[in-house]
Every structure is written in structure tokens, then in C-alpha cells.
Design a protein around this nucleic acid. Structure first.
Lengths: 102, 102
DNA sequence: CAGAATCCCTTGCGATACTG
DNA sequence: CAGTATCGCAAGGGATTCTG
């Protein structure tokens, strides 16, 4: 379980996986804009590299100018969807039946 | 979703909730021993206070000497079980079909 | 557009020592 | 037993600046 936790660690990691799961292959900038809140390009880039190294995300760069880099979920990355959906489910339930502050 | 993520944050948080879900009310020391790896008493205590403040965990202290403090899941804490089980499920699948390094 | 390079700051956590 | 008090460190991430 620790290994799963570790791969999900990082402020934006779950959001990134969630966005890719729901939007399919997405470009860097767009992915960044899909995040709820401000993410620095640095954090985004770093995290995506880690996710790629972890085998959860696939990176495909078109060698054009300007560059067009698209990220997508690997099979292993899609495994996470089960967890993300559970989170989303809980989140919606909490939001619905009362507005849990903070 | 962010609120759920935030409540699950912390190195030991998911493990704590998971342990409480599977073992029922558990005393401080025992809970600490159930963690996979070394946890300082400080971290454990801090995190439990946060979990209590977040309304996920209930703390019941028997005013004896030596003290006997028991932690358990609140209803809201049990909501997390859905997520934890998903994590556990993925963890087992990964562990079974190959030994994902790291 | 998609980063890489710096700089800096906050947070989380462990180790250790102490207490009612 | 179940904490609290201190100290110190490393990781994560934001802001900013620069580039092919």
C-alpha cells in the first residue's frame, strides 16, 4: 500500500491523474490549466517527470515549433482511477450532505 | 476533492485510518506499532490530533494511571474506507502481477 | 509552448529528552 | 502509557527569469 501512496504523493498528483482520466491525452499547458488552483510550471513539469518515471503517465512530444507535448495515462496509470473515483465519490457525498468546512 | 485529499495527507494518515478500520478501536501504542515502519510518537500524536479535529477519528481517554487512550473511526472516518480499500486493491494487484520496484 | 535554472520558504517528520 | 517540548533537516513547491 505504501508504494501506491508514494506514487500518489505530491500536491497535484491525484488531480493530474484525474484530469487525464477524464479528458484523455492532454497537452502540458491545458493540463496545467485544468488544475484547481495555481500550479507553477516547475512543479507541474517535475511531477510529470516523476509520473512518467513511475510508469503512470506517457509523454509524447511532437518536435515542432512551438513544441507540442501531450500526456496520457498508461495502463498502470489507469489503475489509479479506481482510487480517484472513490475519492471523488466521497468528495461529492461530503459536499452534498453538508458543506464540511475547511 | 481537494478537501478529501487534504484530510488524507500526511505520511501515516492513510495507514492510521486503515488500521482503525480493520482493527476497530485501538490504543495509542498499539496503533503506533501497527504502522508499517517507524513512526515517532510526536508524529503519531500530532496526526491523531489533526484527524480528531477533522472529525475522522474519535479519542477516548480513560483517566487512569497509566493512561489508556483509545482511538476509533467516526462515521466520517469510515467514509474513507472506500478510498482505502481501493488503494489496497490496487496495491495487491500490483504486488501480485509483478513486483513493481521502488 | 514547454520547459530548465535559481532562489527561498514552509511543512512534515524523525530523534531525543522529559513528564504525569 | 501517552503524550509534550526542542531541535534540526530534507523535500516539495511557488515565484521569477530565461530559452529553443
Amino acid at each position: 500500500m505504501d508504494v501506491v501512496l508514494q506514487r500518489l504523493s505530491g500536491r497535484w498528483t491525484p488531480h493530474i491523474l484525474w484530469a487525464l482520466a477524464n479528458n484523455g491525452p492532454t497537452r502540458f499547458g491545458e493540463l496545467r490549466r485544468l488544475m484547481p488552483g495555481r500550479v507553477s510550471a516547475k512543479s507541474m513539469s517535475e511531477r510529470l517527470q516523476i509520473l512518467e518515471a513511475d510508469g503512470l503517465v506517457d509523454r509524447r512530444a511532437e518536435p515542432t515549433t512551438p513544441p507540442e507535448v501531450t500526456y496520457s495515462l498508461t495502463e498502470r496509470g489507469q489503475d489509479m482511477d479506481e482510487i480517484l473515483r472513490a475519492m471523488h465519490s466521497v468528495a461529492e457525498r461530503w459536499e452534498a450532505s453538508q458543506g464540511p468546512e475547511t
